[in-house]
Design a protein around this nucleic acid. Structure first.
Length: 596
RNA sequence: GCCUCGGUAGCUCAGUUGGAUAGAGCAACUGCCUUCUAAGCAGUAGGUCAUGGGUUCGAAUCCCGUCCGGGGUACCA
C-alpha cells in the first residue's frame, strides 16, 4: 500500500483516538513536503484545530507522535506553522525503486475483461488542402491521449473521419479542370495534397477577383459572392457529384487519391496512425436517414418548407437545422451518420472527439441529438476540446496562405537538428543512416514536446523562428539526458558491472532521495494525465524528473564510484530514470535515441 | 447583445482537491569542458498572479463586479 494512503488512514484513526472525531476522509490533506523543509510528506493540521481545540503546534505534535508509533516507515516528524512534516524511511523509497526497476508495466494499468472500449476520433482532415500546424496539434494530442488512455487500462480504437466531399473539394476540382493543364503529382513531382491545395488557393484567388469585378459592375457584395462564375461552376460540380455523374466522380476519386497518398506520408512522418477510417462520403447519407427516422419518430420536426429541425430549447439550447429545405445535409448531419456507423461497428463505451474548441457548441448539440436518437454513449461523449495554435501574425488561414505547412515544418526542423548536431560535433562516429534517424527523432521530439507540454485546453503561441528550441525545457533536452544515461549503462556493461536488485547502502544524498521520490510519482502522473486528458501532465513530469536527474548526475560520479554498493544503487537509479522517461515520452509519441 | 474560454517575469509556459517564501525555459549578465556526452550545471537580475471587492486560519486557485483578449451564436464546413 502506498505510504500516502497509510498516512491518510493513520491520520483518520489518530483524530478518532485523540479527539474522538470521525473526520470525512477527503478533509485530510496529505501532500509532498516542500523542498526547503525537513521531511518527505506533510499533513496540513489547520483543518483539525476546530475539534482538537488546541494550538496548531500542539495538535501537530500529538498526531505526529501517534503516526510515528503506528507506521514503521515513518521515522520522525516536525511541526512548522501548522504543517506536520513526516520523515519517511530510506528503505521505503528504495523498495519502490527496486520494484519499478526493469518493470515494463510500471505506471501502467493493464486492460482486462472489464476494460472500457474508448473510441477516439482525431485528425479529421478535409481533402482539399495539406495538413498544417493546427492539424499537427490535433494529431499529436489524439495520438498521445490514445496511448495515455491505454496506459490507464482502456481498450482504445483510433479513428479518423475524412471530410472527403462537399463544396470545398469541388472548388479544387473545378480549378484543376480549368487551369490544371493536366498536372498530376507524377508529372509535377509535387506531393498530392500540396498539389490539390494549390488549386484550392488558385480557386480562391480567381473567385475573389471575380467578386471584385462584379462589385465594380454594381452588384452588392452578397450578390457578387453568390453569382461569381467560379462558385456557380463549383456548385454545379457538387450537384453532379451528388447525382453520381461518372466523369465528376472519377475526377473526385482521382484527386482524393492524390491527397490520401500525401496524407499517408505526413501521418507516417508524424508517427500517427488509425485503426479505422471513415469517409464522410459514406456516412452523410446514413446521417440523413437517421434524421428522417427522427422525423418519423417525432424526435425532430419538419417545417412547411420541408427543412428539418431539432428543437433543443428544453435543453437550454436553440433550434438547430438538420436538413436544408432542399433536402441536403448540413455539417452535423454527417456526424450523426458517422456515429450510427460506429455504433454498428463497435461496442463503444465512450466516444472521444478530438476537435478544436471553436466547435464546443457543435458538440454540445451533437451530444443531445445522439442521446435523443438513442445512442447509449451519446449523452456523455467527450469533446476533447483543444485551443488554437496562433502565429505572431495572428490566426492561420489556409485560403490566404498564412499557414505553417506540416511537411515543411518537420523538414525544416530536421535540418536544424542536423546543423545543430554538426555544430556541436555530435554523432560523428555513427553511420549516416543512424545519424539521420536520430536527427528525425530529435526534430520530432522538439516539435511534439513543444506542442504537448502546454495545457491542451489553452490557445498556444507558435513563433516559427523562435519557438523550436533544443535547449532548456524541450524534447531534445530530455532525449539528451536519456542518451547520456544509456551511455553510462553501456560503459558499465562493458566493464562487466551487473546491476543487482539487492540494494545495500547506508545513506542517501538529498539529490538521490529527490529522484527516488520523483520515481514514485510516475504512476500518479499517468493517472492524472488520463483523468484530465492531458499529455502536458506527462511532459511536465518528465521534465521535472530529468531536471532532477541532471542535478544528481552533476553532483555524483557514477562509474568512478569506488564503493560497490553505491555504484550498484546509482546505476539502478539511473537505469530506472531512463526507463521512466522513455515510457513517459513514448506516451507523447516521442522516440528516444540511444545516442545523440 | 447573449453564451463560453482565457489574462501568472520582457517572451513562451508550469503551478496538485484552497496551504508554507508563486516556479521553469528563452532572452540578459557571471562562473564552470584535462573529469561518466557542456543539447549540461551553478549563480545574478526580472512578479501588485489584469483589476476592485468578498468568503477564511490561509486565495494565482473559490464567489461577485469591472477591464482586455480568443472562440461561438448561419439553410458554411
Amino acid at each position: 500500500m502506498k505510504i500516502e494512503n497509510l498516512i491518510h488512514k493513520a491520520t483518520e484513526s489518530a483524530l478518532l483516538d485523540l479527539y474522538n472525531f470521525k473526520i470525512d476522509e477527503n478533509q485530510i490533506q496529505v501532500q509532498n513536503t516542500r523542498k526547503d523543509q525537513e521531511g518527505d510528506i506533510t499533513i496540513v493540521v489547520f483543518p483539525f484545530l476546530r475539534f482538537s481545540k488546541k494550538s496548531a503546534e500542539e495538535t501537530g505534535n500529538e498526531i505526529g507522535g501517534y503516526i510515528v508509533n503506528r507506521l514503521q516507515d515513518v521515522e520522525s516528524f516536525s511541526v512548522i506553522k501548522g504543517f506536520l512534516n513526516l520523515k519517511i524511511s530510506n528503505e521505503y523509497w528504495i523498495e519502490n525503486l527496486t520494484s519499478s526497476y526493469s518493470n515494463a508495466d510500471y505506471g501502467v494499468i493493464l486492460p482486462c475483461e472489464k476494460s472500457k472500449l474508448v473510441m477516439i476520433e482525431y485528425s479529421s482532415p478535409n481533402t482539399n488542402k495539406p495538413l498544417h500546424l493546427g492539424h499537427i496539434r490535433n494529431n499529436l494530442l489524439g495520438y498521445s491521449i490514445s496511448d495515455i488512455l491505454k496506459a490507464n487500462g482502456n481498450k482504445v480504437i483510433k479513428t479518423n473521419i475524412v471530410n472527403d466531399r462537399g463544396i470545398h473539394i469541388c472548388k479544387s476540382m473545378y480549378a484543376w479542370q480549368k487551369w490544371g493543364e493536366g498536372k498530376t503529382p507524377e508529372n509535377s513531382g509535387m506531393k498530392g495534397d500540396h498539389l490539390v491545395g494549390e488549386f484550392y488557393v488558385e480557386f480562391d484567388k480567381k473567385y475573389k477577383a471575380e467578386i471584385a469585378e462584379l462589385i465594380r459592375k454594381g452588384l452588392s457584395k452578397e450578390e457578387a459572392e453568390s453569382k461569381a462564375p467560379s462558385i456557380l461552376a463549383a456548385r454545379e460540380l457538387l450537384l453532379k457529384w451528388e447525382a453520381g455523374d461518372a466523369e465528376t466522380v472519377n475526377l473526385w476519386k482521382k484527386m482524393n487519391e492524390w491527397v490520401y497518398s500525401g496524407f499517408d506520408v505526413t501521418y507516417k512522418k508524424l508517427g500517427v496512425d488509425f485503426d479505422k477510417i471513415y469517409y464522410e462520403s459514406e456516412t452523410y447519407l446514413v446521417g440523413k436517414e437517421e434524421v428522417l427516422r427522427g422525423v418519423r419518430e417525432k424526435i425532430f420536426i419538419q417545417k412547411e418548407d420541408s427543412s428539418v429541425w431539432a428543437d433543443l430549447t428544453s435543453d437550454g439550447l436553440d433550434q438547430k437545422i438538420l436538413l436544408r429545405s432542399d433536402g441536403t445535409s448540413v455539417y452535423i448531419t454527417q456526424d450523426i451518420g458517422t456515429a450510427k456507423m460506429r455504433y454498428n461497428d463497435y461496442e463503444i463505451d465512450k466516444m472521444v472527439y478530438v476537435v478544436g474548441n471553436e466547435q464546443n457548441y457543435h458538440f454540445q448539440i451533437l451530444a443531445v441529438l445522439l442521446d435523443k436518437l438513442g445512442f447509449s454513449w451519446g449523452k456523455d461523449l467527450y469533446h476533447f476540446s483543444y485551443g488554437m495554435v496562433e502565429l505572431p501574425s495572428g490566426k492561420m488561414k489556409s485560403r490566404e496562405g498564412t499557414v505553417v505547412d506540416a511537411d515543411d515544418l518537420v523538414d525544416e526542423m530536421i535540418q536544424v537538428a542536423r546543423d545543430m548536431s554538426a555544430e556541436l560535433g555530435k554523432l560523428e562516429s555513427i553511420s549516416k543512416e543512424d545519424a539521420e534517424d536520430t536527427f528525425r527523432m530529435i526534430a520530432l521530439g522538439a516539435l511534439k514536446y513543444f506542442i504537448l507540454k502546454v495545457d491542451p485546453r489553452k490557445n498556444m503561441m507558435f513563433n516559427p523562428s523562435e519557438s523550436i528550441d533544443f535547449n532548456g525545457n524541450t524534447g531534445p533536452f530530455i532525449q539528451y539526458t536519456y542518451a547520456r544515461i544509456k551511455s553510462v549503462l553501456r560503459k558499465s556493461a562493458e566493464n562487466n558491472i551487473i546491476i543487482n536488485k539487492n540494494v545495500k547502502i547506508n545513506s542517501l544524498s538529498s539529490k538521490e532521495k529527490d529522484l527516488l521520490k520523483r520515481i514514485t510519482l510516475y504512476p500518479i502522473a499517468v493517472k492524472e494525465a488520463g483523468e484530465n486528458y492531458s499529455p502536458a501532465v506527462i511532459a511536465n513530469y518528465c521534465y521535472d524528473l530529468v531536471k532532477e536527474f541532471n542535478q544528481f548526475y552533476h553532483e555524483h560520479s557514477i562509474l568512478s564510484e569506488p564503493n560497490e554498493h553505491q555504484l550498484n544503487f546509482r546505476l539502478m537509479l539511473s537505469a530506472t530514470v531512463a526507463e521512466i522517461i522513455k515510457k513517459g515520452m513514448n506516451l507523447l509519441g516521442i522516440e528516444m535515441p540511444e545516442r545523440m
